[in-house]
Design a binder for these strands. Structure first.
Length: 905
RNA sequence: GCCCAGUUGGCGCAGUGGUAGCGCGUUCCCUUGACAUGGGAAAGGUCAUAGGUUCAAAUCCUAUACUGGGCACCA
């Protein structure tokens, strides 16, 4: 076997670099991840498209590892998996990145102009996509790379237009003047969920507004004194006794000297501040509503660039910050400022640039959400859509139920153009004014410039200069990638998808909107399940961010520890509802595990000489198996059953942990050690059986671990595959088998447990007494007649080898033990090591006394328990008998220890 | 402010009523032919606090504290 020879020169340690690149290209050449490559049943999922803002970070690595785990797992189960790759144009985020680049070149978006800017974005995007897709390949992602999509490519443009058109036709779109969240830095409106709230230090300033009639008036409390320039009223609670006499009276607005009324409105909370609120309808959402209720004017004093407008009189032209400073100074000077108290409060900031959001009045496009959200709520309630972990379902439902209209227009350049055209004849448009300030426009929806105006016949049109929220195209992603609005073969086969894997930070921004749009546009939930994972934090639990400088580059980690190690580390910490604390320690664990697997395979190969080159299933017939074989096969079955269950519930960390534990603690530490005796022994039948079991479990593990660690498993499989019962070109094309159905006898099960216990306990004895591990010692054993003792006698050679014993001799109850010997006491056995010269008996009695102490405290608890009549009466009979048995065992252990101590003293 | 989750050995986490576990780290022994990215052994926790339910509580209930998250924000 040539591959065998090659394998013999395998390195002692697994070196990922050599292996990974090779498999990435071999998988690509073979096209094994392309859709339509197998099977009847399909399984599809779409990647959350990363923004083309740069390289992928560790969070992307987590997200895509989880998806790849699922995709590979489903392929191993024989499904035709279609996992669609792609990227998102990323709207504001990407435009911001480009603007920063331009700044370093002393250029700017405006200086460049819209066309040149678009070209610049184009080439940036191409580079960025290349980087991202390259990284996904390196991560081992089994995406169908022939299907790469981009939220702004031609097909996705079709989908965006179709969606927009339908929303328009159905009356879900409108252009209206609202108080929107305006980011002064980005120069655009944002939707409500694009605003984050941050606790910031601030003050509550108390300002006196005097009565026109000369009375003292009242004091208002505000966190934003600069907006007072736009005040049009002061509101108090209608039942607030302090202000009854003032309601309806006029006040002088300080500094401005405008006359404003005192109004009564139930919105006001009398217990906060002074109980009197200045009302600025043009710059505060609540005041806006009060303004509506009381028909108050709206005076805009802050402009879209964040500066005070002409309405601000002497303050015009100042920035928000400067104006605040100046106004406070002036108020102080003129005696209007009565008090300044510290008042930390949350301010809205832009989710992209953290600039403080300014609520400003402007004309924007909105999608009416009410009717769109209720089908999504229904889908959740009826179980057609499930969220894992379930704890996200309530916040998701609540958000949908309280949804507000979605502002979809953005005053930026990078994005899908709004397909609305305005006849210049019918709409008097002043080209110099900001578009979002032009009221009451009448437009038509059209992909390209309309022929002529249906009203006046004019051929002069202007397209809406704004672009759509980037999440608008993202919302269509699960079906736009399959060609919607065309419903071709791919759409029919792969839509709806099965699962969407994403982080909780975009449940509302993305998941909810996909559900709503999917239901509205295709009549189906776009995915029936969503797995929500946490975010990766730094060692101190802080969110990773470029500004904090605590970001981890996944490529660096892959370079250092191997991709499989990174994948293992991420998955084994991805517990439902929990964030991941990143540390290199966990990568070390991953690397070590990879190496362990590697060396298990090396061990198998090193012992393959002279053994059959094919596995015969009859070699696994029950009568050929010995106790250890039965034990490991049965453990293997139990583990794979349990892992399957975990994966079904998306408990991937549990699954990873169980596979790790099985391979390392049971397979390597016990089975392989036992198998060594047989593989190096002279019984050729036993040798063959041991090898067959070894290789069967190992190949099974390669398949089970493949979704977790695709590279090392593929590399090993390529060498071992001839021993697979049905060898495949690649692991992904192989079929998983849980091994022969084995039912372990009670004797086998208890016996193996006792064997392990006996060996561990003797090792502990040796270590405690400082007996060198290499020294072969004679061991004597006393025991009651039991299942366990029968088992140990039958498997004496294992016991001796694992204990490092010259021999283990069983004594009958009448035979006496050498007076001065050390002993290991297990529930069923006492093992004696009669090596006078080697044993420090002082140390030994110390050791025994310590153990006796433990046993006594255990016994105390147990005695108390079984002597409690209430316990006997109320606990289940099974439990009581179990406890009694345990009590007996511990009692026997105690008396044996005491006896030993007596002899020693 | 309301709601949800978490609080377990130095660190990261399992553990939903019946004698507290895992990984990493630490200490000691071992470089014997799979693996020192290894093997063996050991130390280390009154399971945040206070009550309660129960024969029995890390586990169920209540309150408090702290942490994280979601929602709403009072100017």
């Amino acid at each position: 076997m040539t591959e065998n020879t090659q394998a013999k020169i395998w390195d002692k340690a697994y070196i990922p670099k050599d292996v990974e690149d090779r498999w990435v290209s071999r998988w690509a050449e073979a096209g094994i991840f392309n859709a339509h490559s197998r099977g009847e049943k399909s399984y599809s999922l779409v990647i959350p498209p990363p923004n083309v803002t740069g390289a992928l970070h560790i969070g992307h690595a987590l997200n895509n590892t989880i998806q790849d785990f699922l995709a590979r797992k489903e392929r191993l189960l024989g499904k035709d998996v279609c996992w669609v790759p792609g990227t998102d144009h990323g709207g504001i985020a990407t435009q911001t990145v480009m603007e920063k680049i331009l700044k370093t070149e002393n250029a700017s978006r405006r200086a460049l102009g819209r066309k040149a800017f678009a070209q610049r974005m184009e080439s940036w995007t191409i580079d960025c996509k290349k980087t991202i897709l390259g990284q996904l390949k390196k991560l081992g992602c089994s995406l169908d790379f022939s299907r790469e999509a981009f939220t702004m490519d031609e097909k996705r443009k079709n989908a965006v237009f179709a969606a927009f058109k339908k929303l328009w036709d159905d009356g879900f779109l409108y252009r209206g003047e609202r108080l929107v969240n305006w980011c002064v830095r980005c120069g655009t409106a944002l939707s409500d969920i694009e605003v984050e709230h941050e606790e910031r230090k601030g003050n509550l300033w108390h300002i006196r507004y005097k009565e026109v009639s000369g009375g003292p008036g009242l004091v208002v409390a505000t966190t934003r004194p600069e907006t007072m320039l736009g005040d049009v009223a002061v509101a108090v609670h209608p039942e607030d006794k302090r202000y009854q006499s003032l309601i309806g009276k006029k006040l002088f607005l300080p500094l401005v000297n405008r006359e404003i009324p005192v109004i009564a409105d139930g919105f006001v909370d009398s217990s906060f501040g002074t109980g009197a609120v200045k009302v600025t309808p043009a710059h505060d959402p609540n005041d806006f509503e009060m303004g509506e209720r009381h028909q108050l004017p709206r005076i805009k004093v802050i402009s879209f660039s964040g500066k005070i407008t002409e309405e601000g009189g002497v303050y015009a032209g100042l920035s928000r910050e400067e104006a605040r400073k100046k106004i406070l100074q002036d108020l102080e000077l003129k005696g209007f400022l009565e008090k300044t108290e510290p008042h930390p409060h949350a301010v809205g900031v832009c989710y992209r640039c953290q600039e403080i959001i300014e609520p400003l009045l402007s004309w924007q496009w909105f999608v009416k959400m009410g009717e769109l959200s209720s089908p999504a709520v229904k889908a959740l309630d009826e179980g057609r859509f499930k969220i894992y972990p379930k704890s996200w379902e309530n916040p998701y439902r609540d958000w949908l139920k309280n949804i507000r209209d979605w502002c979809v227009s953005r005053q930026i350049w990078w994005g899908h153009e709004i397909p609305v055209w305005y006849c210049l004849q019918c709409n008097p448009i002043d080209e110099n004014s900001s578009f979002h300030q032009i009221p009451n426009l009448k437009g038509v929806v059209s992909r390209g410039k309309p022929e002529n105006c249906r009203v006046c016949g004019s051929v002069n049109f202007l397209q809406d200069p704004d672009v759509l929220d980037t999440w608008f195209s993202s919302a269509l992603w699960p079906f736009s990638v399959f060609g919607w609005p065309e419903m071709g073969e791919d759409f029919k086969r792969y839509y709806p998808t099965q699962i969407l894997v994403t982080g909780y930070e975009i449940i509302y921004l993305w998941v909810a909107r996909m559900q709503m749009m999917g239901l509205y546009l295709t009549g189906n939930v776009p995915f029936s399940e969503s797995f929500i994972h946490g975010i990766v934090r730094d060692r101190k639990g802080k969110k990773m961010s470029k500004s904090l400088g605590n970001v981890v580059d996944p490529l660096q980690m892959m370079e250092k520890y191997g991709t499989d190690a990174l994948r293992f580390s991420l998955i084994s910490q991805a517990r439902p509802g929990k964030d991941i604390v990143f540390s290199e320690d966990s990568l070390i664990a991953g690397r070590n595990f990879t190496n362990k697997l590697w060396n298990t395979a090396r061990f198998a190969l090193m012992n393959a000489a002279g053994l059959p080159e094919k596995i015969e299933t009859q070699d696994l017939a029950l009568e050929k198996l010995d106790a250890a074989d039965v034990w490991i096969l049965s453990e293997y079955q139990e583990m794979s059953r349990s892992v399957k269950e975990d994966i079904k519930n998306y408990n991937l960390a549990d699954a990873a942990e169980k596979m790790y534990g099985f391979l390392w603690d049971r397979f390597c530490d016990w089975y392989v050690e036992i198998a060594k005796l047989r593989l190096q022994g002279s019984d050729s039948e036993s040798k063959k059986t041991a090898f067959t079991v070894l290789i069967t479990v190992l190949i099974g593990m390669l398949k089970m671990l493949h979704p977790l660690m695709p590279f090392v498993t593929e590399e090993i499989y390529s060498v071992l595959k001839d021993w697979d019962t049905s060898p495949a070109d690649f692991l992904i094309n192989s079929s998983f088998s849980p091994g022969p159905q084995i039912k372990m006898t009670e004797e086998n099960q208890k016996g193996m447990a006792a064997l392990i216990e006996a060996v561990s306990s003797l090792r502990s004895l040796r270590s405690g007494l400082g007996i060198p591990p290499g020294l072969k010692i004679p061991v004597l054993c006393k025991s009651e007649k039991s299942l366990e003792s029968g088992f140990l006698k039958k498997n004496l050679s294992y016991l001796e080898a694992l204990m490092g014993a010259q021999s283990v001799s069983f004594l009958n109850s009448t035979e006496s033990v050498p007076a001065r010997s050390a002993a290991a006491v297990t529930p069923h056995f006492t093992f004696y090591v009669p090596l006078e010269g080697l044993i420090d008996f002082k140390k030994e009695s110390e050791r025994l006394r310590k153990e006796l102490g433990k046993v006594e405290s255990d016994l105390n608890k147990l005695s108390q328990k079984i002597s409690d009549p209430n316990y006997i009466l109320k606990a289940s009979p099974e439990d009581v008998s179990e406890t009694r048995l345990l009590h007996q065992t511990v009692l026997s252990k105690k008396s044996r220890l005491e006896e030993l101590l007596k002899v020693l003293s």
